[in-house]
Structure formats: C-alpha cells, structure tokens
Design a protein around this nucleic acid. Structure first.
Lengths: 195, 195
DNA sequence: GTCTATACCGTGATAGAC
DNA sequence: GTCTATCACGGTATAGAC
C-alpha cells in the first residue's frame, strides 16, 4: 500500500509466514523458535509485531471466516431457486478455499484448546448452518433428493469441499486447474460419480 | 481374554484412553500430564506400560491401517465389475471408519512431524492409490463418468468419507443410524445430491 | 526493529521407594 | 503396578541494549 517493497515485517506479512508453518507442523506443533527461523528474525522480534502465537492464529482464522461469510452476501447466494443458490455457494466456497488456502486450512484444523479456537469453531458452525438451511429449501422445492437428511447431506458436501485443503496446491501458472477442480466438485456433489 | 474384568491397565486399555485424549486435544496438544489425569494414574506409571507418547500414537494408527487394508482383501473388493468393487470398498471404508472411529480419526490427522507420523502418511497414501486404481478401472469399463480425472475423483470421494470423523459420534443404542450414514455416503458419492 | 540474555514454567522421561 | 521426587530440556514471553 504505502511501500511497494517492504524489507521489515508488518503483522500482515509475518502472518503469511506463520500460517505456512502452522499448516506444515500443526499449530500446537509449532514453537516460536520454528516461527523465528522461518521468518528469519529472532523469537523476541516477533513479539514486537504481535502479542504472541495466539494472536497470529486469531488473525488467520478471522481472515478465513471473512472470506466464507462474504459468499453468503453475494448476489448469487440470494437470488433464484434454492438449488441454484446452493450450487453457487458450493462453487464459491471451493473457490474461496483455494484462494485463501492456508488461512482456511488453519481454520478447518482448530481443535478447541484455546478460546480463539473455540470462537473459530463456533463461527464455522454458523456458516454450515446457513448452508444447511439452503439445502433444506432446495429439498422442499423438490430439486434435491429427499431420502438423505439435510444436515447429513450438508456435512458430506462440506466434507468433500473442505478435503481440498489436504491435497490442493496452487499451480504455478494459470488457474486452469483450479477451475477444473471447482467443476469436479460441483459435478460430483450434484450428480455423483456414476456415468 | 484372560480376565473378564481388569482393574489395572494393559497397553491396550491405556491406548483406548490415550486415543480419546489425542483426538480431543490433538496429538501435539496432549501432554503426558493430560494423559495421566485422563487415565487416573500418574505420569510415570504410564511409562510402565508403554515406552512413551509416540508408541501410543504408533499403536493407534497401526490399528487404523490394519482395518483399512483388511477391506482390500475381502471378497467384495476382489470380485465382479470394478464399479461394484468400488461401491463395496466405499461402503466398507465408511463402516470401518465408524467402527474404529478414534483410531482412524487419529490416522487422518497426523501431520508428519515424527517418523511414526510419516510412516502412517505413507501407508495411507498406499491405500488411496489402491482405491484410485479401482476407480480408474470402473471408468475404463464405462460405468463411471470420464469427465473427472480418476485421481481427483478419488480424493473427493475420500474427502467425503473421511469427513465423518469430524462429526460422527456412535449412537448409544442401535446401529440403525450408522447404516443410514453409510447409505447416504454411497448414494451421494455415486448418484449425487440431485433428485 | 532487531538483537542477546534471561525469567519462569511445563514438558517428556527416569530413579527408586513401596 | 503405582507412587513421589527429580532431571534436563524446550516452551512462551519479557527486559533492556543497540
């Protein structure tokens, strides 16, 4: 923003480094020592930028949640038949997950040991419920199968989408493969594997 | 086996306790102190039964892997058209996951920090590849859609199945709901959400 | 803004009594 | 088989120099 090239760390740039390490080693498995080595500065220097390890976690999951909830406010999530809105949310959730991959990855892995983690889990549950309501509407409108409970179907749908964080890595060049993944998710979710 | 009621711990019964705590707090987030409190014995007593924390992890993921690889040797996984075998493996994997829930949960969450974890990840990848080959055959036989890459489809399929560990909790009484979940997984995986 | 030095505590693990 | 006592180490975090 202010400077095109920044040599020193900002909370934001430090966060990017920290999140990478968190995802590689797990949050609990990451020490300030690990972070300092990855950032190339000393442990104590980190405390100049952030209050501690948990603040880094808070910023990271906050960013992920922002991205996800933002989807629900987009036009495609509010207009038209429920099944169309659900398809839109499915597509966009997958896209956001890939765009904000390290942040969402971290969000999906919190276990509830600290208050920050519990807050993140709570908000995530909120998001799931919003989508579950959408799915329920689509069943009521007769566009989705009624022989699978809405809550269960939502969980399996998210299970499929969220599993991307376990293996998806952004391709160096074009986002052609990203689009391919999104298409696969939507196809399999709505129409299944069968030919 | 030998004794119907056992008052003192065996490595096996201690493992059951440990795995619960590991899953609640994460492996790295669990200290020997946590384990000792959960088991109702002192820290040092734990070392009488097992070599240390990592041995508990090793036993746990080993058990999960045993269950999963066992599926591939069952008759249903070896006979008939590929699509039928894949459906069988899908169903059985879901069942094993629910039967051995805490052990498989742990397996799916290892991050690769220790050699035990890396071994577990390696074996798990092996299992995935075996199933991926099955899926590829089913596509070749024309029973599954060809517009989604086999490897990608496998990952999404497992993503859906494995996500059970995030929310499934065995019902106190009948396993009626377990069967319901298995049916839902197979239906959604092969035929999708669409009515 | 980054460093060295350090406080202080919880960790995994061991020794040895009972 | 379990305990208490203890160890060496690594953890988060702070103080203060530069």
């Amino acid at each position: 923003m202010t400077m095109p090239k920044r040599d020193t760390y900002t909370p934001e740039s430090l966060l990017a480094v920290a999140v990478e390490v968190f995802n590689e080693r797990g949050y609990d498995g990451t020490s300030m020592e690990h972070l300092s080595r990855a950032a190339g500065i000393s442990k104590s220097s980190i405390y100049h930028h952030v209050r501690g390890k948990e603040e880094l976690l808070h910023r990271a999951v906050g960013r992920a949640l922002e991205g996800l909830f933002g989807i629900l406010d987009e036009r495609g999530a509010c207009e038209g038949r429920a099944v169309r809105r659900l398809e839109y949310v499915t597509r966009r959730t997958t896209e956001v997950l890939m765009d904000e991959l390290p942040y969402v990855t971290l969000l999906l892995r919190v276990r509830g040991n600290t208050s920050t983690e519990r807050w993140a889990m709570e908000r995530r549950r909120e998001f799931d419920q919003r989508v579950s309501a959408l799915l329920k509407d689509a069943v009521a409108e007769g566009d989705l199968r009624a022989d699978v409970e809405a809550r269960l179907a939502t969980r399996l749908l998210f299970g499929m989408i969220n599993s991307l964080v376990e293996w998806y890595r952004p391709d160096g060049r074009a986002s052609a493969d990203a689009q391919q993944v999104v298409d696969a998710v939507v196809r399999l979710a709505f129409d299944g594997l069968r030919a």
